[in-house]
């Protein structure tokens, strides 16, 4: 799952994008991992994440299977962290998304102290992750670099759209919907936060960053370069 590695944008555009995730390895440390994964999610909440999720059930903002028609006028877009934690019932990757480095650093320090024995990764800019490790006094173990997109890149949309759609590396946030949300914010039909919530619901593992999305939507709608 390289679902957070290939987010599009220069390193400064990840200043509000820190994903800390935990996973176990088959046959190595998965025997007693479920409560530890849940503990990881529980520990993240005090550090005020902007999203929390597991790769099976999704994030803190989910689509409804039976939406009340009145929701069109009063839709609840509050992140439900408790539902994510309580709903975790199988081994998978769990993630906490932060919109600032300090929160991510403090959470990494707490995870280190908790000594869960799970593999912990930070997905952000190369420098941002290094700084988190330095603050926590942890030398990096391994690094997976993204070298960006190559090949028939003429098939890709513009940078504003890519900044949004690549926040779901599984591709569940379509380019068309990202473009539509930019247009709707531009037209004043939705606030950046409402449009970001709409995109967030499509992410099936909870790593989409609604705070970064709202910033990008606002900047793109104004014609500024979000990158």
């Amino acid at each position: 799952m390289t679902n957070t590695l290939h987010r599009f944008g220069p390193s400064q555009s990840f200043a509000d994008d820190y994903i800390v995730f935990a996973m176990c390895a088959r046959g190595k440390n998965d025997g007693d991992a479920l409560p530890k994964l849940r503990q990881f999610l529980e520990m993240a909440v005090p550090f005020k994440p902007v999203n929390l999720g597991d790769a099976i059930h999704g994030g803190a903002l989910r689509p409804s299977r039976a939406m009340n028609p009145l929701a069109h006028w009063n839709r609840d877009s509050t992140a439900d962290f408790r539902a994510v934690i309580d709903g975790m019932d199988a081994l998978t990757t769990v993630a906490a998304v932060f919109d600032n480095r300090v929160a991510a650093e403090d959470f990494v320090k707490a995870v280190k102290e908790a000594d869960l024995g799970l593999s912990i990764n930070i997905s952000t800019s190369v420098d941002g992750a290094e700084q988190c490790c330095f603050a926590a006094g942890i030398p990096r173990h391994s690094v997976g670099y993204s070298l960006g997109f190559e090949g028939k890149t003429e098939k890709l949309p513009n940078a504003d759209v890519l900044l949004l759609s690549t926040m779901c590396g599984h591709g569940m946030v379509s380019h068309s919907l990202a473009k539509k949300m930019i247009d709707w914010v531009k037209e004043g039909r939705r606030t950046p936060e409402q449009a970001a919530a709409c995109l967030t619901r499509f992410c099936s593992c909870g790593v989409f960053n609604p705070a970064r999305a709202a910033r990008i939507l606002q900047q793109a709608a104004r014609g500024e370069s979000p990158a």
């Binding site: 440390n29 007693d32 024995g117 912990i120 997905s123 800019s125 391994s142 997976g144």
Partner: peptide, 27 residues
């Protein structure tokens, strides 16, 4: 010519807790 902007960084807190490589559940 690459200047990687983004990376996943494994911070090395994981450890093996099972003596035998027994495949049980997905990760």
């Amino acid at each position: 010519g690459y200047h990687p902007e983004r990376a996943k960084t494994n911070i090395g807190l994981g450890r093996v807790t099972q003596a035998e490589a027994k495949i049980t559940v997905s990760a």
